[in-house]
Simulated assay, not measured.
Amino acid sequence: MTLQEVLSALEDDQDDVLGIYIEPPESNVLSDEDSAEEDGGGFIDNLSGRQLRAGAEILVSTQRGECESDGLETSDKRSKDYAALQNFRNLNITAAEMKVFLGILILSGYNNVPSKRDYWDSSGDLPMFRPEEHLDFDECMIEYFGRHPCKQFLRGKPIRFGYKVWSLNTTAGYLVNFDVYQGRNPASNSEYEKMVGKCAAPLLQMLDEIPQEKKNLAYKLYFDNLFTGFELLKELRSRGYGATGTIRENRIPKDCPIMPSKEIRNKQRGFYDKCLSEEDSILLVKWVDNSTVRVATTCHSIQPVAPVWRFSRAEMRNVRIPRPSVISEYNRYMGGTDRMDENVSYYRIGIRGKKWWWCIFT
């Protein structure tokens, strides 16, 4: 549409016009004269022929309510037509419902949550620790590439550089307590370190910090072979807590009448051996899977032995092998810290900082 056509269309009604935007006129014409007096300016009659032939756009104001109403009614009608085309009957959509739907789309654009179901979750965050029977103690890494004496390097981990943190979690990933590894910690308990080692001592300190009304509950703790030892299991049992963890071969007492790992690894897959220390009430189990699995516990037993599916390379098919109950319970409740890392990755804070402590909070 040229400017001349726009002006002709606006001769009768100019009340709603906010402005007219003119494209640059043709530059090939050397001279052109307008039809108005040369002393005047800023009027339509002072426009040259080139300007009248140039393209133009008109900006017209409309009532906002009428525009929204017409758009929603059109969307309502088109939705009903499409539903009839797809054989959906009795689709009653109102303009108010369409407005709510559009609002949900806009809200989901700047409020990101891990899944669509979380948009309808009305439960709030936990204001405090609610006691759960099963707790998981493990280490986690906070990624950090700067310079700091506490930065660690763990080969073979998903996060190799950063701060190492001892974490006490529930099975759902709720962080109960944590302690950043600092090497020589001035707040460490030397008695705990001599009794259970430097790695397991933070666990006893975290249990001491649980409120008194929640400390005397019968918790069941799970940890890996970095922390498990007979002294730790006996100490937790004396406090009224159950404990289960994988254990290293060199931490098993030499007088324990259980089949050595060199002999049990040659057994058929699914074979297990057990040993019970009646004095300490510690059950030690060795089970043959892809490799030998060693577990020590004070709260679980062998029975019931349930079958589990494994792939056999010799037979080239899935086979069922027996698995003791203590192995199943350990696999079920051990992943609390990994679940916490997953939850943190969903709600990662995007603001960056250069301070060494910033990554711990974000």
Rank of each mutant, 00 (worst) to 15 (best):
K262A: 12
P211S: 08
L276P: 00
R78K: 15
M340L: 15
E33Q: 03
N28D: 08
P127S: 10
H148C: 11
A9Y: 04
H300D: 07
S35T: 00
E26T: 11
K286S: 01
F223L: 05
G197A: 04
R117A: 09
R160V: 12
E73D: 09
R310V: 14
A84D: 15
N250S: 13
F361M: 14
K274H: 05
E235H: 01
E278F: 06
Y333R: 09
G229Q: 02
E329N: 13
E191G: 09
N343T: 09
M259Q: 09
A95Q: 09
K354P: 04
F153G: 12
W166C: 02
A201R: 01
A296G: 03
R323Q: 14
V288I: 13
Q51S: 07
G162D: 12
C299S: 07
V285C: 01
S8T: 10
I302K: 00
L283I: 01
T228V: 08
A83I: 08
P131D: 03
L30E: 04
C150E: 13
K254Y: 01
Q212C: 09
A84G: 15
D280A: 13
H148G: 06
S123M: 11
A200E: 04
V180E: 03
R53V: 00
G41E: 15
L18K: 11
D273G: 00
S123Y: 06
G42I: 13
S345Y: 04
Q63E: 08
T292P: 05
